[in-house]
């Protein structure tokens, strides 16, 4: 699934990185706890989160996550936007809640990867 397809599915808006909309995403992770995200190692994935601070972008950078979806209509501050631009990470914002947003993407075939071991 591409970032643009995620955006359409969630009725989301681009905050950063519309030009990277063609990038392919292979798996997803939904969490507000960054250490849970860091326990999950997958290539080219998308992170859905209600957390909205600079460490979200840092976590994506470390994990090579290429797209963040901020749920519940969260809006990033200027520092987050700047860092995402520098690191080449797309930020989307959707009004949907976490559960609904994850469900909508799952329905479209996106998966979360293997169980945590």
């Amino acid at each position: 699934m591409t970032i643009e397809e995620i955006r359409q599915t969630l009725g989301a808006k681009y905050i950063v990185g519309e030009e990277w909309g063609h990038r392919e995403v292979h798996s997803a992770c939904g969490s507000d706890m960054m250490s849970d995200v860091l326990a999950f190692m997958k290539d080219q994935s998308v992170l859905l989160t209600g957390l909205c601070n600079l460490q979200v972008i840092r976590t994506c950078e470390m994990m090579d996550i290429i797209c963040v979806v901020l749920v519940r209509g969260k809006q990033p501050d200027e520092a987050m936007i700047q860092m995402a631009k520098e690191k080449g990470i797309t930020i989307l914002s959707t009004g949907h809640r976490m559960f609904s947003a994850c469900g909508m993407l799952y329905e479209k075939g996106l998966r979360g990867g293997p169980d945590y071991k």
């Binding site: 860091l38 190692m41 601070n53 600079l54 460490q55 840092r58 950078e61 470390m62 994990m63 090579d64 520092a79």
Partner: peptide
């Protein structure tokens, strides 16, 4: 707290530039 991760970010870029395999770079960075 907002600056936490700058060292890891710097190291990650450095290792990437050195041509270390991406899987290894990611493990070190995390």
């Amino acid at each position: 707290f907002t600056r936490a991760g700058e060292a890891s970010s710097n190291l990650k870029s450095y290792l990437k530039q050195m041509g270390i395999p991406p899987e290894i770079v990611r493990k070190v960075a995390i």
